[in-house]
Nucleic acid binder design. Structure first.
Lengths: 215, 215, 215, 215
DNA sequence: TATGAATGAGATTTCATTCAT
DNA sequence: CATGAATGAAATCTCATTCAT
């Protein structure tokens, strides 16, 4: 239709280093983020990536598989962030504060996974579950966090809470606003989201730490 | 070939046959919950509600409008719950515990809104924002909660937190697990969800109250 | 495309007695006969039957299923012919002559199955096998023919041939020319096919009977 | 995703790498035999022959031309068989028996032409006609057979049949089972095809000779 | 000669929506 | 209100063929 014949495509480099598959993935990610799997249009992805529609099938076989590859890619990116964040930090309090900062910057830097995850959550989550357990289960943040909180508990610094419940609560505190900001802003009449987020990082960490600490 | 579904449907014509609009709404809600607006199929809704497809258009005009009606209906149900929950309860601590219980029972009783809300959140949230502000803004829980926490702060019972941030954190603590249970269960290897939820209600309220209370 | 909006479709009868499905089948049969399953075009079938393409899917679900229905229909027609031909005829010689006439008139009256059968034969024949055994195995001609030849053998009229082999040979004699006429005509320079066929019926029956009779 | 077939294919470049055209032809023959012209896939032929798809176009220009070459090749092979079979054999009866054996071994040795011929027969047969008349018309078996039968007639050994009709009947007797075996086996419940074929050669020749001989 | 990537045209199928009754 | 059939537009996917290297 309105295929937008992608004007000449420059083609300066000796051989495109496997260009189009990446371009397609990028475009697809945007499309899926905006419309979901069912609402996404292969035509739009093709137009957006400046590639013939057939190439999408050449490289990815089906819309659904393309979607899977997108999820995989998103997961890899996120895993990278997570691992990077899980560097050594022996002080529990400091660690908690860093995690909060991490979540906020995660949503800043890789926001496109937000709609994708939400929709996955809405529909069975099979894909998410697979992706998560495959990449997270025994590494990175949660393990570390559990260890630190347990340590805090043993040292008498923290109350004797259920560690996993606490961690989930903590993640929820962090993530809920980041996920639901548009509605929350509306309901609570928050005008300056940026400022609110800034303040939020301190408030969340404080609340959690206060809730945790023995007195 | 030519599905030939039901076709009996005696319908003794005793009471107003008006039932069909409700049947359609019910079926549609299920369909939208499972597949989202884009993924829902009018055919399936018709089959599910035991009603001819054309009837859907007779009653609702378009798939999108049907979806809107579904959202409206869901909101009304939820608002009902919220108002019912916002009865007088002057003790802040008791109130906090009740809110936690409320959220858990809300997801139990009206779980179908979960996928719908998640998907709405994923795509612009315009409909959600409209629905929420229309029905929540100045009544019900949050207003009450804000008032109670503010009162607690003034009485010296609570720390001087940012009330709204605290409330959002609290809702996040409550809601996050309820929303993401399938994935969380998988990642943290939670086998007995029911038991976990039971325990969770105490842990969440405790954590929040500990985090709030001055010492 | 050039959909040929099928001009008004008369529509005199109170309600078309299930019209379009039959129209589609008829058109499909022609298309499949001419082009085979792989070469057939759903667009063409739609145009030919004066029906919207989507109707084909409404009624038949897929091109392949439509093809199956065509085969089924052809089989039914043929079975009808066969049963009609298998009426009582106690004289073996007369029966043989009638069978020859039958095969020739079969190809005259229901010639469209010829290309379809040939192509089925070319590709696995699974469909044909199913159709044949389902409809022929224990009725009609072959059973009758076998009985008559066996009777002829017992009475000393026929030689002691292998009955089944003989029947297959007989069918082959009859059918081979009917199937391969275009090429045979070309190779043997047969100009007047009609005359050739006429003569053939006598020659074939004679040859077979001579070959069978004891002397 | 991107099938990544073979990719080793060492090809030491010793003898002329010309092999590829033959490889393509071989693969194409198999593909066309299995799926017909319309159903054949150039991709599959490439994969099967271990050759890049573009090579097929380099060598053969188009799928259809490749198909023509296949037919030509098949014809040549068959013609070879036919000529080899048409060696001197002055005894009519012996000749008839040999022809039967020949047909059976032909289908054994060059069975892949079976589906191809059948499909050609199904669709106009133009290609077949061309191929046949080009290669058969005035040489080989049928000429010889006609001569022998005519001789037999003149000598009083054979009845005064229409020679050409008889020959066609004879070929039909031979060829019909070979062509339709799968279905025939099914309908007549023939379990041991090999044994059946063995016996068939004698039965067919006997039947034909008995049918031919004067008494 | 050889390849992996690309393309355009078109094929099959889907689906929201409407029509005739 | 109710239905089965119909429709147009578009969506997904396929495939012969060509291009750049």
């Amino acid at each position: 239709m309105k295929a937008k014949k992608r004007s000449l495509k420059v083609k300066s480099r000796a051989r495109p280093p496997a260009g189009s598959a990446e371009q397609i993935l990028t475009a697809a990610l945007a499309e899926f983020a905006e419309h979901g799997l069912a609402g996404a249009r292969v035509d739009r992805i093709a137009a957006l990536s400046g590639v013939n529609k057939a190439m999408i099938y050449y490289h990815f076989g089906s819309k659904e598989n393309l979607y899977d590859q997108c999820i995989k890619q998103v997961m890899n990116r996120i895993v990278g962030f997570f691992e990077e964040a899980a560097t050594t930090e022996p002080d529990p309090e400091e660690f908690v504060r860093k995690v909060t900062v991490f979540y906020h910057s995660l949503f800043d830097r890789a926001g496109d996974f937000r709609p994708i995850f939400l929709r996955e959550l809405a529909s069975g989550s099979e894909r998410l579950k697979a992706a998560f357990t495959a990449t997270f289960s025994d590494r990175g943040l949660q393990k570390k966090m559990k260890a630190l909180i347990d340590k805090g508990k043993r040292s008498g610094m923290f109350r004797n809470v259920d560690t996993i419940q606490a961690i989930i609560s903590f993640i929820g505190m962090n993530v809920f606003y980041l996920i639901a900001a548009p509605v929350i802003n509306d309901v609570w009449e928050i005008k300056d989201e940026k400022k609110f987020k800034k303040k939020r990082q301190k408030e969340v960490a404080d609340l959690f730490l206060y809730g945790l600490k023995a007195r």
